[in-house]
């Protein structure tokens, strides 16, 4: 049998770089449009206000008070979020338990719920009256009169409103973090004598620091931008429950556009500062 070899093409031809150029133009063009939008937004704010207006707005005592309250409440909401999201993210990542899909869905509710509805729901929860014996039980009344810790229209309401949304985002981040950590290491640790809690604390958690930094960043940023639920559940009383996001609204509503823009710029600076700080902390603990 004669084996006939297929004809080989010996003519090489350079195809040119046009397809690659088109590829980068389309990809870069679409990406660039988004980056440009964000840069223009910030630039517009910067150009609208003058340094004098900016300093004047920031020297107002009510805005300074809102600034301090924002820092404190966002930080508290972030600490609470990480505290809750770490175990919840771990459980959702590692275990298949009855009703897991339900827990998974419930966690996402604060993300998809319209912000005003979330605020209203918090308000109703704290003022819902349950008949008990001859009287009624109301969570807010109990907290205010018995515990001495009023929540609604006070600073704790700000933290709770921020936490409700921040925590949902933190749980998502922590879950993905633990999904990416090999559970085998925890199993091997258990063969060495760990119980599940020790395997979590000594093996999984030290590997999850990067995810915790990311979760903290996203929690803090979400808490900073929270507005609707705070307005409904905590109100926006100057020097008491006013945070920077509500300041922007208050200043706008009384026609102080300059102050509103100055505070907006301040929030941009804060968000970027926190992002950089957490990234720097993250790099610092890198092994």
């Amino acid at each position: 049998m004669v084996f006939e070899s297929p004809k080989q093409s010996n003519t090489l031809k350079r195809s040119g770089s046009l397809p690659d150029v088109v590829f980068f133009l389309i990809m870069g063009g679409l990406s660039g449009a988004f980056i440009l939008l964000i840069v223009l937004l910030i630039l517009a704010d910067v150009l609208y206000t003058t340094p004098a207006d900016f300093m004047a707005a920031l020297s107002k005592p009510e805005i300074q008070s809102a600034f301090k309250l924002t820092i404190v409440t966002c930080t508290l909401a972030t600490i609470l979020s990480i505290w809750v999201a770490t175990p919840l993210g771990y459980l959702l990542s590692r275990y298949r338990f009855p009703g897991r899909w339900l827990v998974d869905t419930i966690v996402d509710i604060p993300i998809v719920l319209p912000p005003l509805v979330l605020g209203l729901s918090l308000l109703i929860l704290f003022h819902f009256q349950i008949p008990v014996g001859n009287g009624v039980f109301q969570l807010e009344a109990w907290l205010r009169d018995e515990v001495g810790f009023p929540v609604t229209y006070e600073w704790p309401a700000v933290v709770l409103a921020q936490f409700a949304v921040s925590c949902a985002f933190a749980v998502r981040t922590m879950r993905v973090t633990f999904d990416q950590i090999d559970p085998r290491a925890e199993e091997v640790a258990r063969t060495l004598g760990c119980h599940r809690g020790q395997a979590f604390l000594q093996i999984a958690l030290p590997q999850a620091w990067r995810g915790m930094i990311a979760a903290a960043t996203i929690s803090w940023a979400r808490a900073l931008g929270e507005f609707g639920p705070i307005l409904v559940f905590a109100g926006s009383t100057r020097f008491r429950t006013e945070v920077l996001s509500t300041t922007v609204f208050l200043e706008l509503s009384i026609g102080h556009l300059d102050a509103a823009v100055a505070v907006s710029l301040l929030m941009v600076v804060m968000a970027v500062a926190v992002l950089l700080l957490l990234r720097w902390l993250g790099a610092g603990v890198a092994p």
């Binding site: 085998r184 290491a185 063969t191 092994p287």
Partner: peptide, 20 residues
Amino acid sequence: WPTGDRNLGYVPQDLTLFPT
């Protein structure tokens, strides 16, 4: 019995050393 109480030394195929 729980895994840790069995006092067995396990070396998995992928070794699974603890990265930290």
